[in-house]
């Protein structure tokens, strides 16, 4: 290993953990602290902007120690600043479940971070999400809005705030979909809105089915869903879908499928 790379690694070790690692040799501490400040402020501002609710509900000490642990222990792979939040969620997944920390974090920490990240991911989805027109609901093949993501949560992450902090998991998990709707406004300006929607388990199955198999018609969906929901007949499911599908289309969660 070349000497210069050893120096760089020492710098990085110290920047990640200025209180624990030894500083690079023969370098003015005052000037090194400038780098410590710049690195920390930059990463912290990205994380704080990406997870405002989590930052608000954790105590200052919890939040600061979480940020410190992220900088120290996580080795971010993405060169894109927009992905720092994703790196943070990946870090939380293992870190908050491990016993590595002297400070304990609320049990919902990771799931709340996932929820907050889904909003950013919806904004960053690359495809246009302008709902196309639909002529006939019955014979249209359907697909899911390309920005839509869903996840099951064991905590009511969508209602968490400082005055409303869950202290136990929900008896049943809930499903939340997050997706983006685009439009051109009256001034022909492009605008985007991210929407959140709690879904019942049957709708969740439907969305999951259409994400895996885009292009199904209502009849196709009824047949496929009946395999997973044997308590309903295909006819009953089809009747239900004739109300559910237009509703999901109105909400721009479903789009007509175009090949």
């Amino acid at each position: 290993m070349d000497d210069f790379r050893e120096i760089q690694k020492q710098w990085a070790l110290w920047l990640r953990n200025p209180d624990g690692a030894s500083p690079p040799a023969n370098v003015s501490n005052k000037r090194l602290q400038v780098y410590n400040r710049l690195v920390r402020n930059n990463i912290e501002s990205f994380v704080e902007r990406g997870f405002p609710v989590l930052a608000e509900v954790l105590s200052k000490q919890q939040w600061q120690s979480l940020l410190q642990a992220f900088i120290e222990k996580h080795h971010s792979k993405s060169p894109l600043f927009a992905n720092i939040g994703d790196e943070f969620v990946n870090f939380l997944e293992t870190y908050t479940h491990s016993q590595a920390s002297a400070i304990s974090y609320p049990c919902f920490t990771y799931q709340l971070a996932c929820y907050e990240r889904m909003e950013v991911e919806a904004y960053h989805a690359q495809m246009s999400c302008i709902p196309p027109m639909v002529e006939q609901v019955e014979c249209t093949p359907w697909c899911v809005n390309p920005s839509l993501q869903w996840r099951d949560f064991n905590y009511p992450v969508h209602t968490i705030q400082p005055q409303l902090i869950p202290n136990a998991p929900l008896p049943q998990p809930i499903f939340i979909a997050v997706y983006r709707v685009d439009c051109f406004d009256e001034n022909k300006q492009f605008s985007s809105t991210v929407k959140f929607m709690q879904l019942n388990p049957v709708t969740m199955l439907l969305i999951d089915l259409l994400q895996r198999q885009p292009g199904l018609s209502i009849t196709d969906m009824a047949v496929r869903l009946s395999e997973q929901l044997p308590q309903f007949s295909v006819q009953q499911l089809e009747q239900g879908l004739l109300t559910t599908i237009p509703d999901l289309y109105q909400r721009a969660m479903l789009f007509p499928f175009a090949n």
Binding site: A12, L15, V39, N42, I43, H75, S76, S78
Partner: peptide, 8 residues
């Protein structure tokens, strides 16, 4: 970056 990105 050194053993991962530091973003500065």
């Amino acid at each position: 970056s050194a053993n991962g990105h530091l973003y500065d």
